[in-house]
Design a protein around this nucleic acid. Sequence first.
DNA 1: GTAAGAAAAATTTTT
DNA 2: TTTTTCTTAC
Length: 781
Amino acid sequence: MITLQQLLDQLNDNQREAVSYNDGPSLVIAGAGSGKTRVLTYKIAYLLLSGYHPSSILALTFTNKAAREMKRRVADLVGHDKAKWLWMGTFHSIFSRMLRSEAERIGFTSQFTVYDSSDSRSVLKSIIKEMQLDDKVYKPGMIQSRISFAKNNLITASAYESHGDLLKSDAGGRIPLFSTIYTTYAKQCHQANAMDFDDMLLYTNILLRDFPDVLEEYRQRFQFILVDEYQDTNLAQHIIVKRLAEIHQHIAVVGDDAQSIYSFRGANIANILQFKSHFPDSKLFKLEQNYRSTQNIVAAANSLIKKNKGQIQKNVFSEKGKGIPIQLLTAMTDTEEGYIVAKEISDLYYQEHHPYNEFVILYRTNAQSRNFEEALRKRNIPYRIYGGLSFYQRKEIRDVLAYFRFIINPLDGEALKRCINYPTRGIGDTTMSKVIECANHNQVSLWSVIGDPVFFQLPVNRPTVTKLINFHAMIHALADEMTTLDAYEMAVKIVKTVGISADMTEDLSVENISRRENIQELVSGIHTFCEDKANDGETKISLADFLSEVSLLSDQDMDADDSADDKLTLMTIHAAKGLEFRNVFIVGMEEELFPSSYISSERELEEERRLFYVALTRAEERCFISYARSRFRNGQLNFTNPSRFLSDIDPGLIDLPADFRQPMSTSSFTPKWQKENSVGKQMLFEQSNETTNSIHDIPHAITSTWKKLTPTSAQISNSAEASIQSGGGITVGNKVFHEKFGQGIVISLEQMDGNWKATVDFGSNGLRALLLKYAKLVILE
DNA sequence: GTAAGAAAAATTTTT
DNA sequence: TTTTTCTTAC
């Protein structure tokens, strides 16, 4: 147990001020490596020592890992007995807890299922199919992200339906039925007693908006609110936090606007930049001393981030040694880049005795890892790759979890589809389509139809009826066991009963053995889960308890086996946020790759620059940056140019090779279609900083997102006009001939990655998007 | 209901 | 180039 004084003595002046300030809202801007987590944990400990009850403190994070780490560190300060009562967890897990206890108010049961993004994509796919829409136009992925953005901006399906601008924008983007899909999707999720990740934020908002007693209860309960990584919050999260803190104003948020790299997931940097306007009495604290990196690295990162506009001014400094300049490695090809980096690592390992686990290779895209893997293998350098399939994404794990879900919530149609499909039991697509149609027709759940196919006059033959009824009976019997068995017993029982065990023991292929091990790992994970809960004094741990936690878990949360063995790390820069390494290699520093060729606005360019900032600030001691002059991308050899970001770094802080030519492009963004012709001067993509308080008002921010997702009619005509000047002679309205698709009419023209793309209506052969570079279009008239 | 073959697409992804 | 998704044939 620590005293208040001891607590404060362990902090620097700025940290101490931030921790002990409790006269109103505060915003703590925590520069990279400045002890952000330390401030958060000490602040919580401080509050506990000054009399707050742990259960009156709410601390929100973005990852379970961060929550766990923070809880551990608070426990180290004040003891586990106190720390365990804290409301500390991810936004989603805390809100899930609230939603489950108030579920009935919004038409769900406390057993509601959480749909992950592949579940919701699958639901959307079947809706699109059912509405007989072309999934080339209504791309499930695109629809999904639009719905996600709508929810993150608190636009419900019904609000969407009555929002003229959005409807108009959809019509202009050739997806007039989007709103209908959204409504159907919301309805189906609701009927399935299921919420997707975004729903958890949206419904929490609705709960707090429509039920004053609930709002009041949680306002009373949470006497102090802390939020980590505030720069990554979206509107939905921001509004919830704001509502809860509205009365007592006991709120502290921590973050770094310079590390906001998740806007593509809906994060709104304005939440942190405009914090003062949402909490006018708030006090700003800045943590500017970096304890991680050498002065050189800090200065280089500072010089880079200075190129961004619209940020909170800070002066990050280091009192460590000057260190060595950043080293730039140039390769002729991507393969050579791998070789050079591996060589450099090898030298440091053998000559300076740096263990491999003090190295990280950071890249913009996962696809870049390959060259490095090969080069590392050649030198026998052990490595670990982050990213790719997570444990919970694996088919066998999803199968098992589907059974858990289905038994707990029989209305969960997605789980049903998966369960009925595996292990094979002679019920295929044909039967399922009939079941779905029958369920829709009778307005009942799939579960009901399967329970009594004869009653619902399902048009299938006798053996199929038996199969369906058997399946129904098996699930029903298992559901009955729920009352007596705990999570672990239940899991074992399910895996045995449904035939997964049998299926796994049958074939002994290598893949199958790995699958079996994965299932084994899941089951023993459940065992551990039960034990942990029992140690905290909980009794009767049900499978539902496990499921409600596991559906909010990601692979990042279970890497227990790291750091023990001496392996180098390969990961994307996004995945590296929050981590630190002695030696950092930032690779693929080329135009079109980093910054990504996908960016289309100054705002996105700035986010890419922040991403680079995050990469640089991971380094403690050495930082290497590499690029190649040529690279295979999508099977094609491309010649590349060094990234414009290289010239954003103060030249005195980076060791340039003798033959290095500064990237010619300036650091500012010019859309290609503006560069090549002078049509269209307005920045259609700029995001507004406005946010609003009301669920039904459409924040300005979202409309701009919309413009990104769907070309507005204005944009289309801009592109069309531009094409008149430089589109290779083809213009909108041309009748053209394609050797495969025949005759068609050019509907629109736009530029992508410097290539002209035409959308052509080939009549019975459908709408086709064609790159003029490849498609040999003959102009007919 | 599965397996092989063709076609199309190919950022980043805390929950 | 690889990976994923859709088709088609057994």
